[in-house]
């Protein structure tokens, strides 16, 4: 009996390790590729014979990834606080105030969540051009500075705030804005962090819109730079692509390690009804 349980436990671990090979393996292969020295054949074994950082340095010096990195940071630093501010503001009356047009506003916001980006990317491209947003950092974040998903997520959080807390603040003479800022906002902090993470990962990795709205390589984000680099997908370029891929992933990875639990809770909050 005991050995049967032990055997079962070992097979569970073996299975879990095998799955890890599938989920993490591609990262390791890419990392090892990135560490290979210039003379080394890309398919001569998985492990680098003579590990070197030269490909990482090259991606900055020769492939201009410093600029792309900076652009991506600028865009993300713009998108995250703006989206948090606008969504947490907009969601509050939708959850807590009774006013004409609330149902309509809410229905409109939620219904836009269903519309695939590919339907309206061409008109958006034209509007961005007319507003002078082509090849600008602001132009790259227009889809992230206030999102229907964010409003929806924040509204769900406000709905869970106990009404009594707000009511006692009103009795103390606070106005709506003060109640929002001093009572509701601190309580929904976990959701704000969740939304921050979502906005960060989405903006950091966004590809299609930056691809359309950027024509100058000086405005490329990491995703675009990486995609451009991979146009030449041959052996000579593979190590450089790998190094750039790792560099692009590291910031999200660090955020993930730092704020792990919010990833998971946010995902279930956002999905159960969205």
């Amino acid at each position: 009996m005991k050995s049967k349980i032990l055997g079962k436990r070992i097979s569970v671990y073996v299975l879990m390790v095998l799955i890890t090979v599938i989920t993490v393996g591609p990262f390791l292969v890419t990392l090892f590729m990135a560490l290979k020295s210039p003379g080394e054949g890309i398919y001569e074994g998985i492990l680098p014979q003579d590990p070197t950082m030269v490909n990482f340095i090259d991606s900055f010096e020769k492939a201009n990834f410093g600029t792309y990195f900076l652009n991506t940071v600028i865009v993300t630093v713009m998108a995250v606080p703006l989206n948090l501010l606008f969504c947490s503001l907009a969601a509050y009356p939708l959850a807590r105030m009774d006013f004409r047009g609330r149902g309509l506003a809410l229905a409109l916001i939620i219904s836009t969540m269903m519309v695939p980006f590919q339907l309206y990317m061409a008109p958006l491209f034209q509007i961005a051009g007319e507003l002078g947003l082509r090849n600008t950092h602001l132009g790259l974040v227009i889809l992230q500075v206030s999102t229907a998903f964010g409003i929806f997520l924040m509204r769900q959080a406000y709905l869970r705030v106990p009404k009594e807390l707000e009511e006692s603040a009103y009795l103390d003479g606070a106005n709506k804005f003060q109640v929002w800022y001093k009572i509701a906002l601190p309580i929904v902090k976990p959701t704000i962090i969740t939304l921050a993470i979502y906005t960060f990962t989405f903006t950091w990795g966004d590809y299609l819109w930056p691809l359309l709205n950027t024509t100058k390589s000086g405005m490329y984000t990491l995703s675009i730079g990486l995609a451009q680099l991979s146009q030449n997908f041959d052996g000579s370029n593979m190590k450089l692509i790998s190094a750039a891929s790792i560099l692009t992933t590291i910031p999200t990875l660090l955020i993930f390690i730092w704020l792990q639990k919010y990833f998971v809770s946010g995902q279930t909050d956002g999905a159960v009804k969205g």
């Binding site: 989920t23 990486l226 995609a227 692009t248 999200t252 990875l253 990833f263």
Partner: peptide, 11 residues
């Protein structure tokens, strides 16, 4: 197991 989820799609 969650790592692929946070990887940028291009990567």
């Amino acid at each position: 197991y969650y790592l692929p989820v946070i990887t940028p799609m291009v990567v």
